[in-house]
């Protein structure tokens, strides 16, 4: 398995992580590590184990075997489905989770997050009445409340239109530049190529590739073709 571009100052990683659900093996001895400020894309076909890996890294699930290495104190988690209360307003959601995160200045944090997500003009609207894209922005804002060292995003751009996606990736890139390590899973391999420093290719719970997008392309015409060819060569 290629392992190009590893960083030395590891902030989060996995060491032989496996996860079983009954007879099904969702993850098989997955190992990697990420450095500060890195953007890692986790890609793979449906059922590859992307969400399972992210949920183990976030602490929601325990691995059946192996361990998560160098877990920082605060890990931001942005699940695929918005994990916010639809009957609360945008500001109320951010305020609630800011309080639960024991953020020092709650109101200043709420204002900053509304600014970051460009939702200040929708602050009083119920989340349930927002579009899917705006709901996802609230979801991300809540994930960032603890000013985490590591941010985990599970298919964050799924419900967003192209303009919102662009804003999202600009925002994520700015976080990474600030030293936040960002993991994201995506089905859009083009996003992985454009916005990730490294890609982790998972298939049937097995980590098949760990390296920069350029290393996966090789002599293929584009990243998506290279990705499909790579999986095909390995029997997936």
């Amino acid at each position: 398995m290629p392992t190009i571009g590893r960083v030395t100052s590891a902030t989060l990683g996995a060491e032989g992580v496996s996860k079983r659900f009954g007879d099904r093996e969702a993850l098989r001895e997955v190992s990697f590590s990420a450095g500060a400020g890195e953007r890692l894309a986790i890609i793979g076909p449906n059922g590859a184990g992307k969400t399972t890996l992210l949920s183990i890294l976030s602490g929601i699930q325990e691995p059946t075997a192996g361990r998560v290495t160098h877990p920082p104190e605060v890990i931001g988690w942005v699940p695929q489905q918005p994990a916010v209360y639809s009957k609360l307003s945008v500001a109320e959601n951010i305020r609630l989770f800011a309080r639960l995160e024991n953020v020092p200045d709650v109101e200043a944090t709420v204002a900053r997050m509304l600014e970051l997500t460009s939702l200040a003009d929708r602050a009083g609207d119920e989340v349930g009445k927002l579009s899917g894209g705006n709901r996802q922005r609230v979801n991300i804002a809540v994930g960032l409340l603890g000013e985490p060292d590591v941010l985990l995003l599970d298919e964050p751009s799924t419900a967003l239109d192209p303009r919102q996606r662009e804003l999202l990736w600009d925002f994520i890139s700015s976080l990474a530049h600030g030293g936040t390590t960002v993991f994201f899973s995506t089905h859009n391999v083009g996003e992985a190529e454009r916005y990730a420093d490294r890609v982790l290719v998972l298939a049937d719970g097995e980590l098949l590739f760990d390296g920069p997008p350029a290393a996966l392309i090789g002599d293929q015409r584009d990243f998506e073709a290279a990705f499909v060819s790579f999986l095909h060569e390995r029997g997936h």
């Binding site: 949920s55 929601i60 988690w77 994990a83 916010v84 209360y85 989770f97 639960l100 995160e101």
Partner: peptide, 13 residues
């Protein structure tokens, strides 16, 4: 149903 449970038990409560 609001998917908030997972977020809550990740160290918040």
């Amino acid at each position: 149903e609001e998917n908030a449970f997972g977020r809550l038990v990740r160290g918040l409560v």
